[in-house]
Amino acid sequence: MLFIIPPKVHLLDITGPAHIFYEAKEYGANIELHFVTINDHTQINSSAGLHFNELVPFHEFQLSTEDFIFIPGIEFSLISDTNFYLKNRLFFKWIKDQYDNKAQICSVCTGTFLVAASGILDGKNCTTHWKYFSEFNQKHPEIELIKNRLFVIEEGLYSSAGVTSGIDLALYVLEVQFSSKLAADVAKEVVIYFRRSESDPQLSIFLQYRNHLDTRIHDAQDYMIKNISSSFTLEGIAENVYMSPRNLTRLFKKTTGITVGNYLEKLRVDRAILLLEEGNKVSYVSDQCGLKSTNQLRNLLKKHKEILPKDIKSLF
């Protein structure tokens, strides 16, 4: 398992997945960890100022089918710098050579830009951090960018959305390469009790529509999330945040861009998908989503069928 350490690397992009594989090794998995530079410098300064020392130059490794390379994100100023690519063209050729030798390549966040620079993503699918979708499309129109996914896998190429999604990807690799039990044990060891999958969106409804500073609307959103299994009313939400129903309705739409009813509906759909994927019965799921019957749940999910995972869609 090689972890590439480029200049201005984002710390969690590299240390998150690396720690997952370290824990797997502690559980007895046959894994070797190597930390590698993209040039001959054995010391690299991260984007946060922390230095990495005693690194190994990339050209000392020739990989094959059993090997994985993790490439983390770096500061965007480097990604947009043509000289950066020219100075490191031998590294990008090396990446292509390793992929041709059947090594599997994983990128985290803007690390997808580095993989794309090698040419191995041409004509394939990938993802990257949502903030850089436009830049990626402009720079690499020959690559199909899959948006709103935690990670995308195609032909030995794994790309993830960034930061903590690199940990989700590392756990997925453990599960595929070793076993579900090992992945579950490691997730528990690092106190990750909710593992996200390839089909999960980069931003769940619990994070969307929160990019505002209105405390009362945040309180209203928190109230709905905490009480999602209850059949509360608009009047009940308004009373809890000391507003009139009319004022709450107006201000919620103005602040978030979505109505209270639509927001609650999205919360229930997100909650239902999670519970169904865990194998719960439809009657239990409808109850936990604050719905009066399984028919209500079915009608709600049919309304949002386009976002349902395939295994859930088949149920309805």
Rank of each mutant, 00 (worst) to 15 (best):
K25R: 11
L86S: 15
G119D: 13
I69L: 10
N30D: 13
S77E: 08
S134H: 00
K87M: 12
L63T: 06
T37P: 08
L33S: 02
K102E: 14
Y22V: 04
L78P: 13
F133C: 09
E75F: 01
G73S: 07
T128P: 09
F76K: 01
E66M: 13
E23R: 13
T127N: 06
T127G: 01
T15Q: 13
L90M: 13
D13K: 04
F68W: 15
F84R: 08
A117W: 10
S47L: 11
A29R: 08
V9T: 14
E75A: 11
C109M: 07
K131W: 02
Q62C: 09
L50I: 15
N39A: 07
K131A: 03
A24K: 01
I105D: 02
V56T: 09
V56M: 06
A24C: 03
Y22R: 15
R89W: 06
L90G: 12
P57S: 08
I120R: 14
K93T: 15
E135I: 06
F113V: 06
V108D: 02
T65Y: 03
E32R: 02
T15A: 14
I120A: 09
N39D: 15
I74Y: 05
D100G: 05
I95L: 15
I71N: 09
F35Q: 04
G73Y: 06
S47V: 02
H59Q: 11
H51N: 05
P72H: 08
K124Q: 08
N83W: 10
V108I: 14
F68R: 14
S64T: 08
F52M: 00
I14G: 06
K96A: 14
Y22L: 10
S134V: 04
I38D: 01
T127E: 01
N83P: 07
N125E: 11
F136P: 09
W94R: 09
T128V: 03
T42K: 13
F58E: 10
S80E: 14
E23N: 06
R89C: 05
L121F: 05
V9E: 00
I95N: 13
D100L: 14
Q104K: 15
A103H: 04
T37I: 02
F58I: 05
L11D: 12
S46T: 04
F91C: 11
I105E: 05
T127W: 07
H59E: 12
L12S: 04
T82V: 11
L55Q: 05
N83D: 06
L90R: 12
L114I: 10
E75Y: 09
K25C: 07
